[in-house]
Design a protein around this nucleic acid. Structure first.
Lengths: 342, 342
DNA sequence: CTGAAAGCGCTTACAG
DNA sequence: CTGAAAGCGCTTACAG
């Protein structure tokens, strides 16, 4: 910056004002300074800016997953990609961290806060009794909780923390759409192979399924929770199909379990969709790659990430904390669902 | 830090020395300072350290993929997870970026360098005529290239750049192992559905396949390149199987294409592995979830990430640039491969 | 072994 | 509209 000031024949502060679009310099000076800066390929040192109270220009994202479940999530990279579209436009960096569990995640937040490494964070996988919002609130670290913290599916009247927004997914409505679709085909016995029991969205889906089943008079409907792995997905499928009143349709909370489940059906001599309909919650290349191609709920992970990042940017800019609804996932009907036999 | 100095009754510099394990303070003082710092939950501001010439304490990682291919890669999250194990131990952050292509990736490196945001980077997906090593070298940004830059599979005599190491995968040997395994089962007509033609490892695998086929006297062997998508994987399979001399085995460069290919075979009335053997290059939950479960090459992505990060840390510490070999991928034989009929 | 001082590269009141 | 100066929170020669 000294260089620029010298070459442009102005003071350092003039350079700072010019480059940051602040009033206090003439248009002509601003242009000249800009030109010199571009010529030199100059970019403000993030460290220096941060030290002068401008914030770290960085957003944090922690993924807490046991190593085993990692890489199964087709959702995640697309979600991050959406986040980046927004952040990079604003020259914000994304500090990314993979940890083993919630406790370590909280430690990471504390560390980032103490080191002033991030200006805000995006929180994923909200849980029942989640300790993270309260922690972030106490640290005063702006955050966007992705997935919504509510359990019963009702939108909140107001955001409970001053700098924590949430981007809510209407799992209840989505589950309703799936169940109604299956009921419309004639299915009465439906099993839901859910994900981790501690997650808020798992609870929401289970509750919604139960409510829908009651409303539509489908008593044979139930949910079982898993760890999202192909092993537990297969096992749950095996148990369900081996029961006395086997389901004619199964809803899986992710794509890998859906594929595993379809495989188990095949192994047991059943044909998809003739003997068993399969729905995957989460569309991906995987759902299109298998044979038959899987009917799936498509969430547009990229748009989702974009939305979350935009909300965090708004929060960092002093915007109010909000509880934002997301567009409902769309059911993409493919070849794995049909009317039950008989 | 001022606070700590006051409470411990020493000067700020003493605090700095004590906390950074530098000589210049007595053991007693060091202990006292440490205690006060812990009490206050103090952590050095990364920005301030960076500004004092300590580096950004951050490592960069750019993933250049078209949005469409994103999320297909089970490899990536595990790789990142391995990187993190090493970085977090050393209190290094990971700045992560997803971009659309190589040009944008280079722009990101320039920006990071100018803003002094990272101390080094990990480079993935080395390409033929890759512009990145030269760029990073000119910027003086330490880097580890993951996958190796060589095309012909020969280890390099020396690292060509002073601060760029590479972690090399022996694709040639791995391909050799797969081909020999298939040849041992009796396969003569093998098709390799490869990934993007510009990538170094694609070229290495194709070259190795050709060499092996020549050595083993398998003239009907060939490679076709794709964009890694399930669509192109399926299409390549369809074309291959519809030909006059259809292959009895297909090697796919990723897991999603392997699944798609197996689906196409099924659709065409073929049974895997009776009529067609399928091998996936990259093991994942996916390979275990499908039915039949896929024989796959397992690379241990986590260990790979760990290795890359360790090498970058060594480079940042002033270590020499090296060309490191990685353990060869292991062939995990499952249910998708068998002797050809007849 | 310890303290006072300069400096890293910016931003921002404060005078001119 | 412009310049000289202080300050952000550290590290590091340099005196004592």
């Amino acid at each position: 910056m000294k260089d620029i000031a010298r070459r442009a024949g102005v003071s350092e502060s003039a350079v700072s004002f010019a480059l940051n679009d602040r009033p206090g310099v003439s248009e002509a000076t601003r242009r000249r300074v800009r030109q010199v800066a571009d010529q030199l390929g100059w970019r403000a040192s993030t460290a220096a800016r941060a030290l002068s109270g401008e914030g770290a220009a960085t957003v944090g994202l922690v993924l807490a997953r046991p190593a085993r479940t990692l890489g199964v999530e087709s959702f995640f990279l697309q979600f991050v990609s959406g986040i980046q579209e927004v952040l990079s436009e604003r020259h914000l960096g994304l500090l990314f961290r993979v940890v083993a569990g919630a406790e370590e995640e909280c430690a990471v937040y504390r560390g980032w806060w103490a080191e002033q490494r991030v200006d805000g964070v995006i929180v994923v996988d909200p849980q029942i009794g989640d300790p993270r919002p309260a922690l972030l609130d106490s640290l005063g670290l702006p955050a966007v909780v992705v997935g919504g913290r509510d359990v019963n599916g009702e939108p909140r009247a107001a955001a409970p923390y001053p700098v924590i927004s949430s981007v809510r997914v209407d799992d209840a409505a989505a589950m309703g759409a799936v169940v109604e679709y299956l009921a419309g085909l004639g299915h009465r016995r439906v099993v839901h192979v859910a994900g981790l029991p501690g997650l808020a969205h798992t609870t929401r889906r289970i509750a919604s399924l139960r409510a829908c089943a009651a409303r539509l008079g489908m008593p044979g409907v139930r949910s079982v929770t898993t760890d999202y792995s192909e092993g537990q997905g297969a096992e749950a499928t095996r148990l369900a199909l081996a029961g006395t009143e086997p389901p004619t349709a199964i809803i899986y909370d992710n794509d890998v379990m859906a594929v595993a489940g379809a495989g188990v059906a095949l192994e047991m001599g059943l044909t998809v969709p003739r003997d068993l309909s399969v729905v995957a919650w989460e569309d991906s290349a995987l759902c299109r790659a298998t044979h038959p191609r899987l009917t799936a709920l498509d969430r547009d992970a990229t748009a989702f990430g974009r939305r979350a990042a935009e909300e965090l940017v708004s929060l960092l800019g002093g915007g109010p904390a909000r509880d934002l609804p997301q567009p409902m996932p769309q059911l993409v009907v493919r070849d794995s669902t049909a009317a039950p036999r008989g």
